[in-house]
């Protein structure tokens, strides 16, 4: 399947036009969906997320919270993951990533509906702090979603590459790709056809607490995440006694 540039994707998402700009690998702007203004942030060119980039995305999100209360946010994901440079570790890049994740969470708390779309690549840490923080996460069919490539995985785990490759053909846990993340519940839908209509529908969808574990169970991709979390939550307690606080998750 052909890769699409952010521009092609944006043109298809927003047929009525948009005001999204790229500055380097950073994307930001606004557009209209069904007559409703939305804010767009994201990255392109398989962006490496260094401390500056994480802070830039965080700035854009905080600006929306301050200046456009309640406006939905679309995160366009194309990232190679965190910068692997010494200088970024010196600066505490994990803190910048955590800050970005907290900003997305804060936007959620302020009532912003947050949707992410993986239109190209989503690798590990860059994805966790942004796209995976959204209420709903979507992917184009050709999206490449993974932790790291099989070669590096083999090097770190000291398991033969051939063996990992063979296993990854049958195991959704090891193999990259949108379909596997769908099965495991981390991707809500894979969009094909009229992606503008899909986005409009996504923005109308009601959202609640993190549903990924239960979706992973329904779809047969992750059997234990949900049940184990529930067991820990209720272990040794009587489920029939109402909790003192309202329930979540």
């Amino acid at each position: 399947m052909e890769r699409r540039s952010w521009r092609e994707v944006a043109d298809q998402l927003f047929r009525g036009g948009h005001r999204i700009e790229a500055r380097g690998a950073f994307l930001s702007g606004s557009a209209t969906v069904d007559g409703t203004a939305i804010s767009v942030v994201g990255t392109t060119d398989h962006a490496t997320i260094d401390a500056e980039m994480a802070l830039r995305i965080a700035s854009a999100i905080l600006r929306v919270v301050r200046e456009a209360p309640g406006r939905p946010i679309l995160i366009l994901v194309d990232t190679n993951g965190p910068s692997l440079r010494h200088r970024d570790e010196l600066l505490g890049i994990n803190t910048y990533m955590a800050h970005l994740a907290k900003c997305v969470e804060m936007a959620r708390r302020f009532g912003h509906h947050i949707v992410s779309l993986i239109y190209d690549r989503a690798l590990s840490g860059g994805f966790i702090a942004s796209g995976m923080m959204a209420d709903l996460c979507f992917a184009l069919p050709q999206a490449e979603i993974r932790v790291m490539n099989i070669r590096a995985m083999a090097q770190v785990t000291k398991i033969a590459r051939e063996r990992l490759e063979r296993l990854s053909r049958s195991s959704p846990v090891l193999a990259p790709g949108a379909e596997n993340y769908f099965k495991m519940g981390a991707v809500d839908e894979i969009w094909s056809g009229d992606i503008g209509a899909h986005l409009a529908a996504a923005l109308r969808q009601a959202v609640g607490p993190d549903q990924r574990a239960s979706r992973g169970l329904e779809r047969g991709g992750r059997h234990l995440a949900g049940p184990v979390a529930q067991k820990v939550r209720w272990y040794g307690r009587d489920r029939t006694i109402p909790a003192t606080c309202d329930r979540q998750g």
Partner: peptide, 15 residues
């Protein structure tokens, strides 16, 4: 890494 995708999603769920 032995549970690559499931581990990544799990960390996101923790956050």
């Amino acid at each position: 890494l032995h549970e690559a995708n499931a581990g990544l999603i799990a960390v996101s769920e923790i956050i």
